[in-house]
Structure formats: structure tokens, C-alpha cells
Nucleic acid binder design. Structure first.
Lengths: 335, 335
DNA sequence: TGACTTTACGAAATCGTTTTTGTAGGGAGG
DNA sequence: CCTCCCTACAAAAACGATTTCGTAAAGTCA
């Protein structure tokens, strides 16, 4: 491992000068700078991150808590794309990414302790169980933090415009002539509550009442549950004309259940999803859904976090709302 | 930030003793060890990774090159699950994960240089463009490395049993009575070549000849291309009875194309995929395909890498073959 | 009791940088 | 000529841990 000291010897100067030359300090002559850099290059010098961090207390890396304890972790296109965007933009901004862990040697740390151990410049929480005390403790432990899908004091946050998305979906379905809308809710978390609130509110605005039997508690990414719910809804004396599924994947379960009952989408039953999963758009009938700009959410997370790091104590957290985009597919029939 | 020195003062002992007590060195009395640990606990001491690494030259972290420059990066269930398995197992084994980057300050490094900069204990290359000289240079730069889907000198590697998988698929289709099999190949890389070779070989074994017009060059994860190929195949004077798609996602394009031509799967056309994507299994007709154990591939990658690190110079690279599992769906008709 | 070993701790060097504080030497200005 | 101020470099002190070596004190044994 070639060090700064080795370069100094070869150049006949001091390690201090080498360091400054490599970092482009102003108090090194142009000639010396050139010489040092040339020698460093030909000796194959690569700095040592640990030494640099020890001295400067900066790591230029972000700690990432990603879908911690989620049923579906990476294996969901929406979150994968978000991570992709986050990583790409963070690297462009000069930060690299490490996963936050809880293990150190034999013992178990809290997230906050691990972050302190690694001296991350910032922390991104890309969806987690925000009820978890350990997660809450991490968010407020003093290290610049940006969360996705929920909001904490002092932290920036990036949110999908769920209320706006649902409103647009409901209005579209209404304009297509539907008046009997059923909704299957996702897990009982913030996102789900916001969407449900927007659904009820928009229905009311448009003069539609949602009977209790049209309003079912379900889960995200649960095709089986969605199938079951669909069977119940379509067995009602007056079934809904359109079902709002919590997400595109759940819709697939609904579709299967409907087909099993001999019902065709959209002829006998209209349906909308949420997410805009690319893979689901490949299948027929093309799903009408609200596409979420996952990549942009990831990108904004990185940018906001970089901002928080740069501004330090003077940082005022922002709340960034990312709009979706209505995909008018083939699953909502004109009545 | 509470340091070892602060603890030492509070305990009335030297930093050396604190360090040794915390690390459970044998030459510290039980009483002192207890005292130091208690004080460290109540002062909220967390070690400093940078200082430790600087001194010990170990990081206990793996660098990860993941789907670098791939069209579909994280957003593919197969690779996501692999990453999930890798991360989980690596953490269990005491390593944490950082993405390999190429940026350092203003300048651009090679992968190998970045790995040296961060002093990773090991490197996992979870699929990359292995033709890329930078990737090849990384694999042989001296740091313990495990690759997925390709093999390099001195590196461990984890491979999906593509040959076995294809063989099993072909045999199954043969047993179902099919004799006119067409194949759409994926991108021209190692995986694709292995699969194609196994396809040709098994067909020959079973006494089937594959005419040129049944053997098409395509790409992975390309529904549009697969649709186009399907149209060409089904427009032939004697079309195939079964199409082998390069993967489950491509199959979706084929299915759409077939439906557009008024053909039903599997009544008019049988089809098999590859991967066993969970989402695709949700749609009807259920795809017959070869499920790849992505999670296990990730797990084995972590274990092999940990082994390589532990054994150091004495490590003899192993090649780990992960078998898949035939999913008998509904897309291959009994003839 | 004297010699030797063991136990338990401390001093100090070290890892590779960065950064502060000097300090020569040369040029400018009076 | 003297002073002052740049410029360009060096010396040395950090950063926070680990680790080697040394050494008192205590224990062991003949």
C-alpha cells in the first residue's frame, strides 16, 4: 500500500506538502503540485478512507435503512426503482451508500449506534416500520436524516402525492360513469390512511356515498387477500361496478378471483390499482392505475439529504411531494 | 463523542486497558473488565470504525458491485431477491455492505482503486458486464472476490444451474408430446450461451432437430422483442408448438402477441419461461417455467465470500451450482 | 528466603491522513 | 538598509483505536 509518506520521500518533500498538493491547496507551487501528482499517479497511490475519516470526521457516505422488516423488501419494482434513483443521485453528489446494520462483532447495536460507529454523513430511511422505536430513535439522533413516506421532526421527507393520486383516480372513474366504488385498503400505515381519507373525501365531494360493505381492510401486495375481498364484494346483492385495489399486485389477485367467478374485466367489473408497476402493464387488460415516480422519489431523497448535510445546523427540513401520473388503461369500462 | 480515553479517565486506568477490556483480552482482570464495560455502557460509548480500520486494516465490510450498467438493475425480482439473500447472510456473518462506486471527490477511480480506498475485506460482483475490462480488473485485483453468473481465476463463483434447468424444461415439454420447439435466446452472454447449448444438446438427445427458423436471437427482459419473435414464429408455414422464452418477462410479451393474433395459450401455442418470477405466477394461464433460487444464490455468495476472507491466501476458489425447480404451470398443453 | 513465574496493568508506538503553526527566503516599499 | 509581507514548504500534533513491550506486584516452589 503506497502512502503519502512514500510519495513524499520520492519527491523529496514532506508528507504535508504531498497531502496539500493532492488536495489542491493554494500554498503549494504549481511545479510541486504537478510533480507530486505525477509521482502519486505512477506509484499507484490511492488514499485511505479510514485515515481520512479519522482525521476529518467525514465519510462522504450515507447510511441506508431500506424497507427494514418489510414483507416485500427489495423485490418490489417500486422500491427497487426508488433505491436505484437514490443510489445514482447520491453517487453523483459525491456520496456512497452503505446499508445500516445492527450487528457489530458479537453484540447488537441500535440503528443510531451503528450510524455513530460508522460516522455516516447522513441517513436515508427509505420506508421502514416507523412505529418501531428504534427507527424513531434513529431519525432524531442528530445525524442529518431524510425519510420516505413519513415525517419526523427535524428530518426532511419525501412523499408520494397519495392524496392527489387517489383524487385523480376517483374523479376519472366517476367521469367514466361509475357510482358504486369499492375500496380495499392497504396495511394500516400512514400511506394507507392518506389514500383512504382521500378516497372517502373525493367520493363525498362527488356526491357518492360509500357503504360499509364496499370499504374493506386489506393489506398491500397481497394478491390472495385481494382475491378473497373481490369474491366477497362481487357476491353482494348489489356489487360495486369498480374496485380500488391497494396496489397493482393486489389487483392481480382480484383479477384471478373475478375470472374464477366467470366475470370479465372490465366488462363485468372495473378495477384500478396503484403504483404503475411496469411488469403489470405488460398484461392484458392493461391496468388503469396511478403511476408513482419512484425514481424521482429516490433522486429527491438523495438531494435533500445532501442539502441537509451541507447546511448542517442551519438546515430547515423540507417536505417534498412527488406527483404521480394517471395511466388510463383498459380496466375501467365507460358506463 | 465519547472515546476510549474518556472511559479510561473515568475508570482510573489506561486507554490500553479499556481497549483490552472491551475486546475481552485475557490479560485484564474480571473486575476491571466489568467496571470498564459498565462505564462504557453508561457513557454511551460507541467505537469509531475509522480508527479501528486504520489500525487493524480490516473493515468487516463487503463491497458490492450490483448489476452494474444493466438495463434492468434492481427492478427485477430475481436480482432483488438475490441481493436480499446476500445482504441478510453477510450481516449474519458479521459483514456490512457498501456499494462500489467510482467517484472520489472530483475524480473518477477504477473499481479496483475504489475497493482499495475503502479497504473492503471482500468484494461481491452480483452480475455485471463481465466483458468490461474494469470489472475484470476488479475481480483479479487481489481482494477476495466472489462473482455470480461468471467465473474468474482465483475467485469463487455462484452459478445458477442453467444447463440442468433447461434440460429439465426441454424434457418436460418433450414428455408432454411436443416435438416442434422454438427457442428465443437472451443477450449474448455466458448465461445465455449455456442455456442455448443445453437446449440444442437436449433436443438432439431426444431426437428433435431445431430448424434455423425456430432458433432466434433475442434479449433478456424484452417483452416487445419477444412479441415480435412470436409473431414471426407463428406466421411460419409450420409454426412451433412450444416456444422457449428467455425469461418470464419476455414471455408476457409473447403472450400478448399471441393473443393479438387470436391464438390462445396453451390451446394454440405452448410456452415456457425462465426465472419463476412471483408476480408472473399471479397471472393466468400460470406460466410453466424454471424457478431460480435467487435467495440461495445470494446466501451462498455471502458465505463463499466470508470463507475467502477467512482463509486468506490459502483459499481455494469454489464453484457453487444452485439448482432450480420446475414449475409445472398451465402453459404447456398435453399433446 | 531467594529465584522464578504469573497476573494485571501502563507507556508508547503505530496506522495514514489533515491541519495548524512555524519559518526560511525573496521581493516590495519606505 | 531595514522592515514587512508574501510564497512555499516543513514540523508536529492531532484523530481514536490496537498492540507490543515492559514492569511492578503477587504468587509459587524448593
Amino acid at each position: 500500500m503506497v502512502t503519502i509518506k512514500a510519495i513524499a520521500e520520492r519527491c523529496g518533500c514532506s508528507p504535508a506538502t504531498v497531502s496539500k498538493a493532492l488536495n489542491g491547496a493554494p500554498d503549494v507551487s504549481r511545479a510541486m503540485t504537478r510533480r507530486v501528482r505525477a509521482v502519486a499517479g505512477e506509484m499507484g497511490y490511492v488514499p485511505n478512507a479510514a485515515a481520512r475519516t479519522l482525521k476529518t470526521a467525514r465519510t462522504y457516505s450515507f447510511g441506508l435503512l431500506f424497507r427494514e422488516n418489510a414483507k416485500i423488501g427489495l423485490a418490489h419494482e417500486f422500491f427497487s426503482l426508488m433505491l436505484d434513483g437514490f443510489k445514482r443521485r447520491a453517487e453523483e453528489l459525491g456520496y456512497d451508500i452503505s446499508f445500516i446494520n445492527r450487528r457489530l462483532g458479537g453484540q447488537e447495536l441500535t440503528y443510531a449506534e451503528y450510524v455513530q460507529y460508522r460516522r455516516f454523513d447522513g441517513v436515508a430511511i427509505i420506508t421502514a416500520n416507523y412505529e418501531d422505536p428504534l427507527v424513531r430513535a434513529l431519525a432524531v439522533c442528530g445525524v442529518p436524516t431524510v425519510t420516505v413516506d413519513d415525517q419526523f421532526d427535524g428530518c426532511g421527507c419525501v412523499l408520494s402525492d397519495n392524496a392527489g393520486g387517489v383524487r385523480e383516480l376517483v374523479r376519472y372513474v366517476y367521469e367514466m360513469g361509475h357510482r358504486r366504488l369499492a375500496v380495499l385498503r392497504g396495511d394500516n400505515n400512514r400511506v394507507s390512511r392518506v389514500r383512504w381519507g382521500a378516497f372517502r373525501h373525493t367520493c363525498q365531494e362527488l356526491g357518492m356515498t360509500v357503504p360499509d360493505e364496499y370499504d374493506l381492510q386489506g393489506r398491500f401486495h397481497d394478491p390472495e387477500g385481494a382475491g378473497e375481498a373481490t369474491r366477497r364484494l362481487m357476491a353482494l346483492a348489489t356489487p360495486p361496478t369498480c374496485i380500488f385495489y391497494p396496489d397493482d399486485i393486489s389487483y392481480l389477485g382480484g383479477l384471478r378471483a373475478a375470472e374464477d367467478m366467470g366475470l370479465c374485466v372490465p366488462e363485468d367489473l372495473s378495477a384500478v390499482g396503484y403504483d404503475g408497476i411496469g411488469l403489470v402493464q405488460q398484461i392484458r387488460p392493461r391496468l388503469t392505475t396511478m403511476w408513482q415516480n419512484a425514481d424521482k422519489m429516490g433522486v429527491e431523497t438523495a438531494e435533500e439529504l445532501a442539502r441537509a448535510v451541507k447546511e448542517g445546523g442551519g438546515y430547515t427540513p423540507r417536505q417534498i411531494l412527488i406527483p404521480g401520473e394517471l395511466i388510463k388503461g383498459e380496466t375501467v369500462k365507460k358506463l
